[in-house]
Design a protein around this nucleic acid. Structure first.
Lengths: 214, 214
DNA sequence: GTTCCGCATTTTGTATTCAGAATGCATAGT
DNA sequence: ACTATGCATTCTGAATACAAAATGCGGAAC
């Protein structure tokens, strides 16, 4: 058994992201360090270190003397984040080994086609989507880029639980993923990238319908 | 007079970035927290907070029990970073107001043409380059993107002082910037983006010649 | 009744202390 | 002579203690 030897700040960071994903923190609310530290059973020091790391990813904001608060959501920022992620994933595809892309394409198609059949509980949908995009990017050798992508996506996480999974969007998502996979199978990388962009933009619009105006 | 009211961790972060830019820290070397804290005249706590923030930007690495060290440089990582920045700046241009781009184009051209005439001390070249790209992106309303760009560029900073400014590269850089500005003047956004990409790739190759093999 | 001032309380920001892990050296054993 | 083990030292990781800033409330002045 490999014993867990990670700094507390990282474990705390992950725990906070988990809770955020579960919707336990409302956007815009202040963090009370003492209370949260007690709740987690740690001291304020590693907690603050985790908060600083999360602030670097845009999950939290901080201001002098007022501490940290969960970053408020806005339609504008969501659009900005989607544009960034779309561009970065496009780059990742571009710099992937075409050979590898073709080899994972069948599995990508499989997964995408299976989407609508599965239960559509919200958290499940997101996790499955993450897995799909993860596989899509698995051939990208730009480690820095993959790192950056996970960080930016972490900043998007708080938007995920604003909407609930519905049948029609899930079907659309599935169709779009199939399209991307088929392009890859056909060795049509530019087409796949275009489809990927369309997928992000489309997903964004489907989400925006649920995000209240600023 | 507005008195400075920023958390120590931010001031420390900036100071460390300054020193890094000045080449005071060798890549790959360990940070001794106590020594550095004493040198800066602060305690280890805010210093560590700054180190954690910098680690999030890829400037530092950390490992359990061994603390922080300045991230080693590698040709591979440099290529990765350039690809990312090129993609992000392209996105920024795409999402800029064309009107605004045309309006700053003359000044961009002016600045670019002035480049070769100025003294070519290394730090000056970089600062002037930053200013030029800053102006180029001044019309981008995607705040998150601009934020991300500065962070990724911070991670590139440690590569800058590996090379010294030379006449020929500076002239090339100037010519490429002129090309971008002219495209903008002609309302040719796609052309400008292509030229921008070429500028980054070209600059990368010119730098790579000076970066030792991994 | 309303506004402004000041004090008490709460919470953050920073320093200090403590504990535990890693490194290096010395010594003992083969 | 070489290797391995134990110990001392150094440094990081985390907790606690302290200082200073912000918030909220109550009372006094108008």
């Amino acid at each position: 058994m490999a014993i867990e030897r990670r700094p507390l700040r990282e474990q705390i960071r992950d725990e906070l992201m988990d809770r955020l994903t579960r919707g336990e923190f409302a956007a815009g609310t202040d963090v009370n360090e003492a209370v949260l530290a007690a709740e987690l059973g740690v001291s304020r020091t590693p907690l603050r270190e985790a908060l600083i790391a999360l602030a670097g990813e845009g999950v939290l904001e901080s201001s002098q003397g007022r501490g940290f608060r969960f970053a408020p959501v806005s339609r504008k920022e969501f659009r900005e984040l989607v544009a960034i992620v779309a561009a970065l994933e496009s780059l990742a595809l571009e710099s992937s080994d075409p050979e590898h892309l073709r080899s994972v394409a069948p599995r990508l198609l499989d997964l995408a086609q299976g989407f609508p059949d599965q239960v559509a509980e919200h958290a499940t949908v997101d996790r499955r989507d993450d897995e799909w995009h993860g596989l899509l990017l698995s051939g990208c050798s730009n480690e820095r880029l993959l790192d950056l992508l996970t960080r930016v996506k972490a900043g998007m996480r708080r938007y995920e639980n604003l909407v609930v999974a519905e049948d029609e969007p899930v079907a659309r998502e599935s169709a779009e993923h199939c399209e991307i996979a088929r392009r890859l199978l056909a060795d049509d990388l530019p087409g796949a990238i275009t489809a990927l962009r369309a997928n992000w933009i489309g997903g964004m619009e489907r989400m925006l319908a649920h995000i209240p105006a600023d």
